[in-house]
Design a protein around this nucleic acid. Structure first.
Length: 263
DNA sequence: GCGACAG
DNA sequence: ATCTTGTCGC
């Protein structure tokens, strides 16, 4: 798949102010509501899937691992994509791309965006939905990596983060029961009216009982997906583990492919 | 100045 | 993100 908006591709050589300006543009171009070409209910309901006349939707998970040079610096990213359809992996691709800038909170897409786009170019199928490791709308300028990639590619996208970048949970998110979600709303650190719903803390898995618990995922709309659907999808795809299956598999594939380069 | 900060 | 064995608990 290729960029629909090459003009919005993240450019790591920009000044910080220009990066932030581009993010405001991304946010303005983003749709934080459902605009999918399939019924997201089929992702969790095999009955709905089998009764549908269409092929099941293709969902891609994307994640990165990093390669170090002789000096010990992270100089390249290995971006991995796992495409799934009806619960089966149908394609895996990856690309190794030089890194231009370090990790800066709020500017992640300028570090990892190019590697991700390189990997997605290798994909022969075209996904109906992409899941990224990181935030979507839960971002200072409402333009996390899932939103940036979604807008550039014009593909429905969702951000799946393991920790919260900004915003405020509407309730305590400690030790939530499996299946529960708690809204994350904008606060003064976010470029939108206070109280705006940015996404959800989603408890995809939880221990049955005792003295330890799993932290929730922070799920937010990237592009063309609303917050409710984003949370529904995360729950539907997190069948065996905390992470949605396409993301979990991309995560391990990123490590597997990296190891395949070494030894 | 202080605190917060995806991967 | 990454460096990494054993270990606690069901």
């Amino acid at each position: 798949m290729n960029a629909s908006r090459p003009d919005l591709v993240p450019d790591a050589s920009l000044e910080r102010d220009d990066m932030e300006a581009l993010q405001r543009e991304i946010a303005a171009a983003a749709a934080f509501e459902d605009d999918l070409e399939f019924d997201p209910a089929v992702l969790g309901d095999p009955l709905a899937a089998s009764s549908s006349a269409d092929d099941p939707p293709i969902v891609a998970g994307v994640d990165q691992s990093f390669l170090t040079n002789d000096a010990g610096d992270q100089d390249r990213a290995l971006s991995a994509v796992v495409a799934m359809q009806g619960g089966e992996v149908i394609e895996r691709v990856h690309a190794v791309t030089p890194l231009e800038i370090p990790y800066i909170p709020g500017l992640l897409s300028f570090r990892e965006g190019a590697p991700i786009l390189d990997a997605l170019e290798e994909l022969s199928v075209d996904p109906d939905l992409c899941l990224f490791d990181g935030s979507g709308r839960i971002h200072f300028r409402q333009a996390g990596i899932a939103t940036h990639m979604g807008v550039v590619l014009d593909v429905p996208s969702i951000g799946v983060a393991k920790s919260l970048l900004c915003g405020s949970p509407r309730e305590d998110v400690e030790n939530l029961p499996e299946g529960r979600r708690v809204g994350i709303e904008a606060n003064s650190r976010v470029d939108v009216a206070d109280g705006t719903l940015l996404g959800y803390a989603v408890q995809t898995r939880q221990y049955d009982s005792p003295n330890r618990y799993i932290n929730p995922l922070y799920v937010s709309p990237g592009h063309r997906v609303g917050p409710e659907t984003a949370a529904d999808v995360a729950l539907a795809l997190s069948t065996s583990y905390k992470l949605p299956e396409p993301v979990r598999l991309a995560d391990s594939y990123a490590d597997e492919a990296k190891r395949g380069l070494g030894e």
